[in-house]
Amino acid sequence: MNGILLNLLNGSLLNGFQLNGTLLNGTLLNDTLLNGKSLLGRMISYFDEINWDLMFKATRETLYMMGVSLLFTIILGLALGIILFLTGPGQMLQNKISYFVLSLVVNMLRSVPFVILMILIMPLTKMLIGTSIGVQGAIPPLVVAAVPFFARLVEAALREVDRGVQEAAQAMGATKWQIVWHVLLREARTGLIAAVTITAITLVSYTAMSGIIGGGGLGDLAQRLGYQRFRTDVMIVTVAFLLVLVQVLQMAGDALVKHFSRK
């Protein structure tokens, strides 16, 4: 009865929050009614229990895992993507065998779910950086998962480059390396920036799974604290953080594409 009365008094905005509150925490409704705080006050106090240091630490970990693995992914994936493109049918270094083998490896890596991949390559991870757990241990599997993904995006972006421009450069006496560097990468730059953006966002979502090997980060926090220990407040905040992070990445990527676009 009290709930209905309050609805009538405070209107629909409050109504929305109460319903949410009810869904999130059955006791919330009664608590807030008893101590009679304002709407905003109650919204804020819902998150009182959150350990913000933990939240920011997790954010830093996510950014660190994404940043470092993105860096390696760009370096390795760009190289792999260029080789895939050049050895592909009808291209400068056309080579059926190389293309087939590379393509197969890329497809195999891409078909393994990240969770499985992380466990599968643990020995490699340990060999590379001395540990197969924690934030450090998450980076090699992230790179291994993202490189083939990014390489395919690079290959597709390079295929978009006008063939005639390559031919013109060839006619000018450009070397193959000059064509790759001064024509292909230059002309494909907006496609490549878009590919980096997509890869960065994919990496953010991959980092969420790194909790399995104690990787940390926002996704891990949402799962262990938010889900397994019923801290819905933590869940909401981590998801909000992830949302903002993805949004910022996408907007930054789009802004760069726009800045470099000459179409």
Binding site: D162, G164, V165, E167, A168, A171, M172, V183, R186, E187, R189, F260, R262, K263
Partner: peptide, 14 residues
């Protein structure tokens, strides 16, 4: 040997 083309083939980013 210079060459020009039907569709110009210029660098669009330059």
């Amino acid at each position: 040997i210079g060459m020009i083309f039907q569709h110009f083939n210029l660098l669009s980013t330059a």
